[in-house]
């Protein structure tokens, strides 16, 4: 069992967890992920490691409660335990001094971009962060990012913070200002990574994306996480998770991510019903 040391909501439905994991903390590098199971009948899900401390023996992850497992995870609090946790998995991010590195992130991807931004900065890059969200309340890790990088720019779909528009608009602004990135790392929802890759392809700017595929074992055995990159099938868990964004078949991956949409909805509904029953029972008990 793996103890949760801290658990705090950092945005609506988005929770940050600090988990005791001394061995993983000691080894993990930017870009790597863990597989976890919340309970003894749970599924295995991959989550990128956001931060860690080898001295204190913990890792942190950010979970957005979208489906059954993530919703269940987000009911856990400090002192609770995870059933299973294994890692660090996947190849670490390749970092070098490119010159100007632009980290583009959206949703919980911003927390996952932190270690890459930090490593990029440490390698001597000028690092610019572009953070995108639908609404200002959904922006996470902005302050942590600001401490790491040279400049942070924000975009929101509704204009509630930063530039009214998408991350690709901010990227265009940068280019218009004469800043040409030498390397772009995009982490976040698939459509965002696809849009960024599409835009930078024309300008020939190298773009790395961190793919979030469905996995079962996560260790190179089952082949669930396959994606098409450069016309070839790759396994995201051991060949990735980072790939050249210009080579990724985003359409196929998008469809593969929705493979269990129906089952996920069913599972989520069952979970919510059980939660509702529990709450009602608790209320009843309190009432008596």
């Amino acid at each position: 069992m793996y103890k949760i040391l801290k658990a705090d909501f950092i945005a609506p439905n988005v929770k940050s967890f600090v988990i005791e994991a001394p061995l993983i903390a000691k080894k993990r590098q930017a870009g790597q992920f863990v597989m976890l199971r919340v309970h003894d009948k749970g599924e295995r899900i991959p989550i990128t490691i956001a931060d860690s401390s080898s001295e204190e023996g913990w890792i942190s992850i950010i979970v957005q409660g979208l489906g059954k497992t993530s919703a269940h995870m987000n009911t856990l609090e400090a002192g609770d335990h995870l059933q299973d946790l294994v890692g660090p998995l996947g190849l670490p991010t390749h970092i070098e001094n490119w010159g100007t590195l632009v980290c583009i992130s959206g949703g919980v991807g911003t927390a996952e971009a932190l270690p890459i931004a930090a490593a990029g900065k440490a390698a001597g890059n000028r690092v610019i962060s572009i953070i995108g969200a639908r609404h200002k309340d959904l922006i996470i890790a902005e302050n942590q990012m600001a401490e790491l990088v040279d400049e942070v720019r924000i975009s929101t779909d509704d204009g509630s913070a930063g530039r009214h528009g998408l991350v690709t608009d901010v990227l265009q602004d940068l280019m218009n200002e004469g800043i040409t990135p030498d390397m772009i790392v995009a982490i976040g929802p698939l459509p965002m990574m696809a849009a960024v890759s599409n835009q930078t392809k024309e300008d020939g700017i190298p773009t790395m994306v961190s793919l979030n595929a469905i996995m079962v074992d996560g260790t190179g055995m089952c082949g669930a996480c396959r994606a098409t990159v450069g016309g070839k099938t790759v396994f995201v868990c051991v060949d990735g998770p980072e790939f050249d964004g210009h080579q990724v078949d985003f359409k196929e991956l998008g469809m593969r991510q929705k493979m269990y949409k129906k089952q996920e909805a069913e599972s989520h509904k069952c979970f919510l019903e059980r939660q509702m029953k529990k709450l009602k029972a608790e209320q009843l008990a309190e009432g008596v």
Partner: peptide
């Protein structure tokens, strides 16, 4: 490998009682 792992290790045949679809 995936089909059998989902069924055997993850007990997908008992979905949704078990979480793996």
């Amino acid at each position: 490998n995936e089909f059998l792992t989902r069924s055997n290790l993850m007990r997908g045949y008992e979905f949704p009682e078990w979480d793996t679809p």
